[in-house]
């Protein structure tokens, strides 16, 4: 009996040492991993304000946000029409244009092809929207994927109109 108890006590000490040791190793590893995450100064730059007062209909500008290009396009009536008249059942990634552009005149989206991260070219492609030169993905005037290898539509970042001349992205 006392033998058995002894064994149990020994096992307890070893198990407890191992368990506590493992906790410690985990606690040490976390800072070493977390240091590679975006730091405080990077996080603080997470939003950008863009002045859009000088943008003519039909034109677009590209701004840098979090190190990535963002397309801001002031669409013409025709382009809006075209985007809204598509039957969403035909789309590989069905999304309504109304959901993508809060104000139909303004389309704000990340200029990064959802295939492998190249930057698509504007006013190109078979759907009058964007065309990615890397692997031939065609996007329409709402930035939705229509043809080619890209799996999803161009991503819409979080943005808001600060006033009629300024968009705040992020």
């Amino acid at each position: 009996m006392s033998e058995k108890k002894k064994v149990e006590r020994r096992d307890f000490i070893f198990t407890a040492s191992y368990a506590l040791g493992a906790v410690g190793v985990g606690a040490v590893v976390w800072p070493l991993i977390d240091q590679m995450n975006p730091d405080r100064s990077v996080k603080a730059l997470a939003s950008t304000e863009v002045d859009i007062s000088s943008l003519e209909p039909g034109k677009s500008i590209t701004v840098l946000w979090r190190g990535k290009p963002v397309f801001i396009k002031r669409r013409t009536k025709d382009e809006i029409e075209e985007a809204r008249n598509v039957d969403i059942k035909d789309l590989p990634h069905p999304e309504k244009d109304e959901d993508r552009a809060k104000d139909p005149e303004w389309l704000v989206m990340l200029g990064i092809c959802t295939h492998l991260g190249c930057v698509p070219l504007g006013d190109k492609g078979e759907y009058n929207g964007w065309f990615c030169p890397c692997h031939g993905s065609h996007y329409d005037t709402s930035g939705r994927i229509r043809k080619g290898p890209a799996p999803t539509n161009l991503e819409i970042p979080k943005y808001e109109f600060v006033n009629s001349n300024t968009i705040k992205i992020g």
Binding site: S17, V23, G24, A27
Partner: peptide, 8 residues
């Protein structure tokens, strides 16, 4: 933590 682990 270190003190407890050292004792164990």
């Amino acid at each position: 933590y270190l003190i407890i682990l050292t004792i164990l």
